[in-house]
């Protein structure tokens, strides 16, 4: 609430100081690992908007866990746009009337301008010889992944493992259950979020393999010492699609709809796509992807839509109270 008041006050001062050109402020509620990405994207968008329209756009950021950010918007955080880790969290906003139910059809590529995938981060030299998903359930291998019930990002990890098992020859629901059950038996610590899990793996030295978003794994490799960790790309993984949307009700109230829409469309331009790639997110644009091909090895991926219908269904089937994760998870 205080932040909101401060923001209004700030917006007010900015508006008052505007003489000729219009000053616009957008608030983007995003999840944690996009901090550096949006710093660059916002600057690039502001420069482009200024050149085209003469107006100054300031995009303010709010970062936090994806689910927490969605709840903040539900509870009144006046975000004009949300850029979160999974569609389920934006669906929750749509359920409460903050934006149209068909929000995911409003932008190309299921409203996800950049993607990532789930990879394995292993220790230097890959001492346990981890090459693919079945290696994770070998005796003596410990896997670090956050709790999918408290981390939106970790739900992609769970679904990646499930999807792998399903896609094997003769794969079916029962086999997927068995594989995932065994996998979570190898998890000694269930952190509440992705950064916590990275910390447990990298700093505390727990576990042999960290299930991570590719962008986080690449970042960890760069930040925590190039020689200390290696990235292993599994044979098949999930296409993680972090979606973006204009929060209709807030944009309407602030009169920022046009800018907010332009901001999100900007994310699909070659300039923004290259910035995304530089921050280790896989670009949607084939041309930009070509330029960064060395950074992103080829991997076979499946989407939520292909295997699970949509996020609402996946959430209900796997992560609701008493659903599959509760039946199979560690501690059982």
């Amino acid at each position: 609430m205080k932040a909101a008041a401060l923001l209004f006050a700030l917006a007010g001062t900015l508006a008052a100081s505007a003489a000729v050109a219009k000053d616009v402020t957008l608030l983007n509620a995003s999840y944690d690992p996009t901090r550096e990405l949006y710093q660059d994207l916002n600057a690039a968008f502001a420069a482009q908007w200024k050149a085209r329209h003469g107006d100054t756009v300031t995009v303010r950021m709010s970062h936090g866990g994806s689910g927490k950010q969605a709840r903040s918007v539900v509870d009144g955080l006046p975000a004009d746009v949300v850029t979160l880790a999974l569609a389920y969290d934006i669906d929750a906003l749509a359920d409460r009337g903050l934006l149209a139910k068909d929000w995911q059809q409003r932008l190309p590529d299921a409203s996800s301008p950049y993607t990532s995938t789930i990879v394995f981060l292993v220790r230097k030299g890959n001492p346990k010889g981890i090459r693919d998903w079945p290696d994770l359930i070998k005796p003596g291998v410990q896997v670090i992944t956050p709790n999918p019930k408290s981390s939106g990002g970790a739900r992609w990890n769970f679904l990646a493992a499930w999807g792998y098992a399903l896609k094997q020859p003769g794969g079916n629901e029962a086999r997927a259950r068995a594989f995932v059950r065994e996998l979570y038996r190898h998890v000694p610590v269930l952190d509440t979020g992705a950064r916590g899990a990275t910390n447990t793996f990298a700093q505390r030295g727990i576990g042999d393999v960290l299930l991570a978003w590719e962008n986080e794994a690449l970042l960890a490799q760069r930040e925590l010492g190039k020689g200390k960790f290696e990235i292993v790309m599994p044979s098949v993984s999930i296409l993680a699609e972090p979606p973006v949307a204009v929060v209709d009700r807030n944009a309407q109230a602030h009169g920022t709809r046009a800018v907010a829409e332009a901001y999100l469309q900007f994310l699909y331009t070659p300039l923004a796509q290259a910035l995304a790639a530089r921050h280790f997110y896989r670009p949607r644009s084939a041309q930009v992807a070509q330029q960064y091909a060395a950074q992103f090895p080829r991997v076979t991926t499946f989407t939520i839509g292909e295997l699970f219908g949509d996020w609402r269904q996946a959430q209900a089937k796997f992560f609701a109270d008493g659903a599959i994760f509760d039946q199979l998870g560690p501690g059982r």
């Binding site: 866990g65 689910g67 927490k68 709840r71 709790n147 019930k149 408290s150 981390s151 939106g152 000694p188 610590v189 269930l190 952190d191 509440t192 959430q315 992560f319 609701a320 109270d321 509760d326 998870g329 560690p330 501690g331 059982r332």
Partner: peptide, 19 residues
């Protein structure tokens, strides 16, 4: 934070909020 073993009650609250 392993369910049934080292999960505290406030964590359950956070998990419920996440849904």
């Amino acid at each position: 934070n392993i369910p049934l073993r080292s999960e505290i009650a406030p964590l359950l609250i956070v998990q419920k909020l996440e849904q």
